[in-house]
Protein backbone atom coordinates (compact mmCIF):
# COMPACT_ATOMS: atom_id res chain seq x y z
CA UNK A 1 0.00 0.00 0.00
CA UNK A 2 1.44 3.32 -1.05
CA UNK A 3 1.38 5.90 1.67
CA UNK A 4 -0.62 8.99 0.97
CA UNK A 5 2.35 11.28 1.37
CA UNK A 6 4.33 9.38 -1.26
CA UNK A 7 1.39 9.48 -3.65
CA UNK A 8 1.06 13.20 -3.19
CA UNK A 9 4.77 13.77 -3.75
CA UNK A 10 4.66 11.67 -6.91
CA UNK A 11 1.74 13.73 -8.12
CA UNK A 12 3.44 17.01 -7.44
CA UNK A 13 6.49 15.87 -9.44
CA UNK A 14 4.32 15.03 -12.42
CA UNK A 15 3.90 18.04 -14.71
CA UNK A 16 0.27 19.08 -14.67
CA UNK A 17 -1.65 18.94 -17.92
CA UNK A 18 0.66 16.18 -19.15
CA UNK A 19 -0.88 13.74 -21.65
CA UNK A 20 -1.63 11.29 -18.83
CA UNK A 21 -3.92 13.61 -16.89
CA UNK A 22 -7.40 14.19 -18.25
CA UNK A 23 -8.20 16.79 -15.64
CA UNK A 24 -5.76 18.97 -13.73
CA UNK A 25 -6.97 21.06 -10.82
CA UNK A 26 -4.43 23.59 -9.60
CA UNK A 27 -4.58 25.83 -6.55
CA UNK A 28 -8.37 26.01 -6.77
CA UNK A 29 -10.02 28.37 -4.29
CA UNK A 30 -13.56 29.68 -4.06
CA UNK A 31 -15.09 32.25 -1.78
CA UNK A 32 -18.77 33.04 -1.39
CA UNK A 33 -20.06 36.36 -0.15
CA UNK A 34 -22.86 35.56 2.26
CA UNK A 35 -24.99 37.68 4.58
CA UNK A 36 -22.67 36.61 7.42
CA UNK A 37 -19.54 37.69 5.55
CA UNK A 38 -17.27 35.82 3.14
CA UNK A 39 -17.11 32.01 3.35
CA UNK A 40 -14.13 30.17 1.90
CA UNK A 41 -15.70 27.01 0.53
CA UNK A 42 -12.64 25.68 -1.32
CA UNK A 43 -9.09 26.53 -0.33
CA UNK A 44 -6.08 25.95 -2.56
CA UNK A 45 -6.95 22.46 -3.81
CA UNK A 46 -4.72 20.68 -6.32
CA UNK A 47 -5.11 17.18 -7.74
CA UNK A 48 -5.06 15.32 -11.06
CA UNK A 49 -7.43 12.86 -12.64
CA UNK A 50 -5.36 10.57 -14.92
CA UNK A 51 -6.84 9.46 -18.25
CA UNK A 52 -9.02 6.37 -17.90
CA UNK A 53 -8.94 6.41 -14.11
CA UNK A 54 -11.65 6.63 -11.49
CA UNK A 55 -11.06 9.33 -8.88
CA UNK A 56 -13.31 9.95 -5.90
CA UNK A 57 -13.53 13.19 -3.99
CA UNK A 58 -14.66 12.45 -0.47
CA UNK A 59 -15.42 14.70 2.47
CA UNK A 60 -18.04 15.50 5.11
CA UNK A 61 -21.24 17.30 4.22
CA UNK A 62 -20.71 20.99 3.54
CA UNK A 63 -16.97 20.73 2.90
CA UNK A 64 -17.21 22.13 -0.63
CA UNK A 65 -17.57 19.05 -2.84
CA UNK A 66 -20.43 20.37 -4.93
CA UNK A 67 -18.59 23.66 -5.27
CA UNK A 68 -15.64 21.83 -6.85
CA UNK A 69 -18.07 19.85 -9.03
CA UNK A 70 -19.73 23.01 -10.32
CA UNK A 71 -16.44 24.79 -11.00
CA UNK A 72 -14.98 21.80 -12.86
CA UNK A 73 -18.24 21.50 -14.82
CA UNK A 74 -18.00 25.17 -15.77
CA UNK A 75 -21.31 26.08 -14.12
CA UNK A 76 -19.74 28.21 -11.41
CA UNK A 77 -17.18 30.95 -11.99
CA UNK A 78 -15.36 33.46 -9.83
CA UNK A 79 -12.78 31.02 -8.51
CA UNK A 80 -9.04 31.44 -8.13
CA UNK A 81 -6.65 28.88 -9.58
CA UNK A 82 -7.30 26.79 -12.66
CA UNK A 83 -9.09 23.73 -13.94
CA UNK A 84 -7.62 22.27 -17.09
CA UNK A 85 -8.96 19.67 -19.48
CA UNK A 86 -5.90 18.50 -21.39
CA UNK A 87 -4.27 21.77 -22.40
CA UNK A 88 -7.45 23.87 -22.21
CA UNK A 89 -8.51 25.93 -19.22
CA UNK A 90 -12.14 25.45 -18.27
CA UNK A 91 -14.23 28.59 -18.63
CA UNK A 92 -17.84 27.58 -18.96
CA UNK A 93 -19.24 24.10 -19.72
CA UNK A 94 -16.63 22.08 -21.65
CA UNK A 95 -17.49 19.64 -24.42
CA UNK A 96 -15.29 16.96 -22.87
CA UNK A 97 -17.13 16.98 -19.55
CA UNK A 98 -20.45 15.30 -18.80
CA UNK A 99 -22.20 15.96 -15.49
CA UNK A 100 -24.55 13.86 -13.33
CA UNK A 101 -26.20 15.95 -10.64
CA UNK A 102 -26.84 15.34 -6.96
CA UNK A 103 -30.51 16.27 -7.39
CA UNK A 104 -33.22 14.50 -9.33
CA UNK A 105 -32.59 15.75 -12.86
CA UNK A 106 -34.53 13.71 -15.44
CA UNK A 107 -36.97 15.63 -17.65
CA UNK A 108 -40.41 14.59 -16.35
CA UNK A 109 -42.11 15.31 -19.69
CA UNK A 110 -39.81 12.98 -21.64
CA UNK A 111 -39.87 9.19 -21.77
CA UNK A 112 -36.76 7.27 -20.71
CA UNK A 113 -35.54 6.93 -24.26
CA UNK A 114 -36.14 10.61 -25.07
CA UNK A 115 -34.39 11.62 -21.86
CA UNK A 116 -31.34 9.56 -22.76
CA UNK A 117 -31.43 10.74 -26.39
CA UNK A 118 -31.58 14.39 -25.28
CA UNK A 119 -27.92 15.35 -25.85
CA UNK A 120 -28.02 13.56 -29.22
CA UNK A 121 -31.14 15.51 -30.17
CA UNK A 122 -29.31 18.72 -29.28
CA UNK A 123 -26.44 17.83 -31.59
CA UNK A 124 -28.96 17.38 -34.39
CA UNK A 125 -28.94 13.60 -34.80
CA UNK A 126 -32.09 12.20 -36.47
CA UNK A 127 -34.78 10.43 -34.47
CA UNK A 128 -34.11 6.81 -35.46
CA UNK A 129 -30.36 7.16 -35.18
CA UNK A 130 -30.46 8.80 -31.75
CA UNK A 131 -32.97 6.26 -30.41
CA UNK A 132 -30.70 3.49 -31.62
CA UNK A 133 -27.77 5.02 -29.75
CA UNK A 134 -29.89 5.80 -26.70
CA UNK A 135 -30.96 2.15 -26.48
CA UNK A 136 -27.32 1.16 -26.20
CA UNK A 137 -26.83 3.36 -23.13
CA UNK A 138 -30.19 2.32 -21.65
CA UNK A 139 -29.06 -1.30 -21.82
CA UNK A 140 -25.75 -0.34 -20.29
CA UNK A 141 -27.43 0.97 -17.13
CA UNK A 142 -29.78 -2.03 -17.08
CA UNK A 143 -33.03 -0.32 -18.01
CA UNK A 144 -33.88 -2.42 -21.05
CA UNK A 145 -37.68 -2.62 -21.40
CA UNK A 146 -38.35 0.72 -19.72
CA UNK A 147 -37.74 2.89 -22.80
CA UNK A 148 -41.32 4.15 -23.06
CA UNK A 149 -41.86 4.89 -19.38
CA UNK A 150 -41.96 8.36 -17.93
CA UNK A 151 -39.67 9.20 -14.98
CA UNK A 152 -42.68 9.42 -12.66
CA UNK A 153 -43.28 5.72 -13.38
CA UNK A 154 -39.79 4.69 -12.21
CA UNK A 155 -38.10 4.28 -8.83
CA UNK A 156 -35.56 6.84 -7.60
CA UNK A 157 -32.66 4.50 -8.40
CA UNK A 158 -33.96 3.93 -11.91
CA UNK A 159 -34.36 7.67 -12.49
CA UNK A 160 -30.76 8.22 -11.40
CA UNK A 161 -29.69 5.53 -13.88
CA UNK A 162 -31.60 7.40 -16.60
CA UNK A 163 -29.66 10.55 -15.70
CA UNK A 164 -26.38 8.60 -15.87
CA UNK A 165 -27.31 7.08 -19.25
CA UNK A 166 -28.25 10.53 -20.56
CA UNK A 167 -24.85 11.90 -19.60
CA UNK A 168 -23.11 8.85 -21.11
CA UNK A 169 -25.01 9.50 -24.36
CA UNK A 170 -23.30 12.90 -24.45
CA UNK A 171 -20.12 10.79 -24.79
CA UNK A 172 -17.95 12.93 -22.57
CA UNK A 173 -14.30 12.03 -22.20
CA UNK A 174 -14.63 12.93 -18.51
CA UNK A 175 -17.64 11.86 -16.47
CA UNK A 176 -18.37 14.02 -13.42
CA UNK A 177 -20.83 12.74 -10.85
CA UNK A 178 -22.01 14.53 -7.71
CA UNK A 179 -23.28 12.00 -5.16
CA UNK A 180 -25.46 10.24 -7.71
CA UNK A 181 -26.37 7.51 -5.23
CA UNK A 182 -26.99 9.73 -2.22
CA UNK A 183 -30.75 9.23 -2.18
CA UNK A 184 -30.59 5.46 -2.67
CA UNK A 185 -30.69 2.56 -0.19
CA UNK A 186 -27.53 0.57 0.53
CA UNK A 187 -28.34 -2.46 -1.67
CA UNK A 188 -29.28 -0.38 -4.71
CA UNK A 189 -26.20 1.71 -4.09
CA UNK A 190 -23.91 -1.35 -4.19
CA UNK A 191 -25.54 -2.78 -7.30
CA UNK A 192 -25.46 0.57 -9.05
CA UNK A 193 -21.82 0.83 -8.03
CA UNK A 194 -21.28 -2.48 -9.86
CA UNK A 195 -22.93 -1.02 -12.94
CA UNK A 196 -20.72 2.07 -12.78
CA UNK A 197 -17.61 -0.11 -12.39
CA UNK A 198 -18.60 -2.21 -15.36
CA UNK A 199 -19.34 0.85 -17.49
CA UNK A 200 -16.09 2.45 -16.47
CA UNK A 201 -14.15 -0.70 -17.38
CA UNK A 202 -16.03 -1.15 -20.68
CA UNK A 203 -15.69 2.45 -21.82
CA UNK A 204 -12.34 3.21 -20.13
CA UNK A 205 -14.29 6.21 -18.96
CA UNK A 206 -12.33 8.82 -17.01
CA UNK A 207 -14.54 9.50 -14.01
CA UNK A 208 -14.58 11.88 -11.09
CA UNK A 209 -17.09 10.84 -8.44
CA UNK A 210 -18.10 13.03 -5.56
CA UNK A 211 -19.27 11.15 -2.51
CA UNK A 212 -19.35 11.06 1.25
CA UNK A 213 -19.60 7.29 1.31
CA UNK A 214 -16.30 5.57 2.15
CA UNK A 215 -17.26 2.05 0.98
CA UNK A 216 -18.41 3.45 -2.33
CA UNK A 217 -15.20 5.44 -2.78
CA UNK A 218 -12.92 2.46 -2.05
CA UNK A 219 -15.01 0.04 -4.10
CA UNK A 220 -14.93 2.21 -7.23
CA UNK A 221 -11.75 4.28 -7.17
CA UNK A 222 -8.19 4.17 -8.38
CA UNK A 223 -7.54 7.28 -6.35
CA UNK A 224 -9.31 8.93 -3.45
CA UNK A 225 -8.96 12.62 -2.68
CA UNK A 226 -9.92 13.22 0.96
CA UNK A 227 -11.10 16.74 1.75
CA UNK A 228 -10.94 18.66 5.00
CA UNK A 229 -13.97 20.34 6.52
CA UNK A 230 -14.14 24.13 6.15
CA UNK A 231 -12.30 25.38 4.36
CA UNK A 232 -12.22 22.49 1.89
CA UNK A 233 -8.59 21.54 1.26
CA UNK A 234 -6.92 18.37 0.06
CA UNK A 235 -6.19 16.44 3.25
CA UNK A 236 -4.69 13.41 1.58
CA UNK A 237 -4.59 11.58 -1.72
CA UNK A 238 -4.81 7.80 -1.45
CA UNK A 239 -4.12 5.50 -4.40
CA UNK A 240 -6.20 2.34 -4.21
CA UNK A 241 -4.31 -0.72 -5.45
CA UNK A 242 -7.16 -3.21 -5.47
CA UNK A 243 -7.26 -5.62 -8.44
CA UNK A 244 -9.45 -4.86 -11.44
CA UNK A 245 -11.93 -5.83 -12.71
CA UNK A 246 -13.75 -5.35 -9.44
CA UNK A 247 -17.28 -6.17 -8.41
CA UNK A 248 -19.23 -5.42 -5.24
CA UNK A 249 -17.68 -8.64 -3.83
CA UNK A 250 -14.43 -6.78 -3.36
CA UNK A 251 -15.85 -5.30 -0.16
CA UNK A 252 -15.35 -8.61 1.67
CA UNK A 253 -11.58 -8.66 1.13
CA UNK A 254 -9.12 -7.67 3.89
CA UNK A 255 -7.28 -5.18 1.67
CA UNK A 256 -10.59 -3.44 1.13
CA UNK A 257 -11.13 -3.23 4.87
CA UNK A 258 -7.67 -1.71 5.32
CA UNK A 259 -8.39 1.03 2.76
CA UNK A 260 -11.72 1.81 4.37
CA UNK A 261 -10.01 2.11 7.76
CA UNK A 262 -7.39 4.42 6.28
CA UNK A 263 -9.93 6.74 4.70
CA UNK A 264 -12.09 6.65 7.80
CA UNK A 265 -9.10 7.65 9.92
CA UNK A 266 -8.66 10.76 7.82
CA UNK A 267 -12.32 11.55 7.61
CA UNK A 268 -13.25 10.97 11.24
CA UNK A 269 -11.42 14.05 12.36
CA UNK A 270 -13.02 16.19 9.65
CA UNK A 271 -16.50 14.78 10.15
CA UNK A 272 -16.39 15.37 13.90
CA UNK A 273 -15.19 18.91 13.28
CA UNK A 274 -18.17 19.35 10.97
CA UNK A 275 -20.50 18.00 13.63
CA UNK A 276 -19.03 20.20 16.36
CA UNK A 277 -19.45 23.14 14.04
CA UNK A 278 -23.10 22.32 13.42
CA UNK A 279 -23.74 21.85 17.15
CA UNK A 280 -22.11 25.08 18.23
CA UNK A 281 -24.00 26.90 15.50
CA UNK A 282 -27.30 25.53 16.80
CA UNK A 283 -26.38 26.45 20.38
CA UNK A 284 -25.40 29.96 19.44
CA UNK A 285 -28.70 30.56 17.74
CA UNK A 286 -31.36 31.58 20.28
CA UNK A 287 -33.86 28.80 20.68
CA UNK A 288 -37.23 29.77 19.29
CA UNK A 289 -39.20 27.40 21.48
CA UNK A 290 -38.41 28.92 24.87
Amino acid sequence: MKSGAVAKAALAAEPSGSPTSALAIQNLSMRFETSEGPVTAVDDMSFDVPVGSFVSLIGPSGCGKSTVFNIVGGLLTGHAGSVRVGAETVAGPHRAIGMVFQEESTFPWRTVIDNVAFPLEISGIGRDERHEQARHFINMVGLHGFERRYPSELSGGMRQRVAIARTLAFQPSILLMDEPFAALDEQTRLLLGDKILQIQQDLKQTTMLITHNITEAVQLSDRIVVMTYRPGKVKRIIDVDLPRPRTSEVITSTAFGAYVAEVWNDLREEASRGMADAESASQMRPSRRS
Binding site: G73, P93, I97, E103, S105, F107, P119
Partner: peptide, 18 residues
Protein backbone atom coordinates in the same frame (compact mmCIF):
# COMPACT_ATOMS: atom_id res chain seq x y z
CA UNK B 1 -39.07 25.23 -13.08
CA UNK B 2 -36.65 23.07 -11.11
CA UNK B 3 -33.32 24.93 -11.48
CA UNK B 4 -31.37 21.68 -11.80
CA UNK B 5 -33.04 21.14 -15.20
CA UNK B 6 -31.59 24.42 -16.40
CA UNK B 7 -28.18 23.34 -15.12
CA UNK B 8 -28.54 20.08 -17.04
CA UNK B 9 -29.15 22.18 -20.15
CA UNK B 10 -26.10 24.30 -19.47
CA UNK B 11 -23.93 21.24 -18.91
CA UNK B 12 -25.03 19.98 -22.34
CA UNK B 13 -24.09 23.38 -23.77
CA UNK B 14 -27.55 24.38 -24.99
CA UNK B 15 -27.91 27.74 -26.70
CA UNK B 16 -30.38 30.23 -25.22
CA UNK B 17 -32.86 29.39 -27.94
CA UNK B 18 -32.46 25.63 -27.36
Amino acid sequence: IDPVLIRVGRSFRLSTWQ
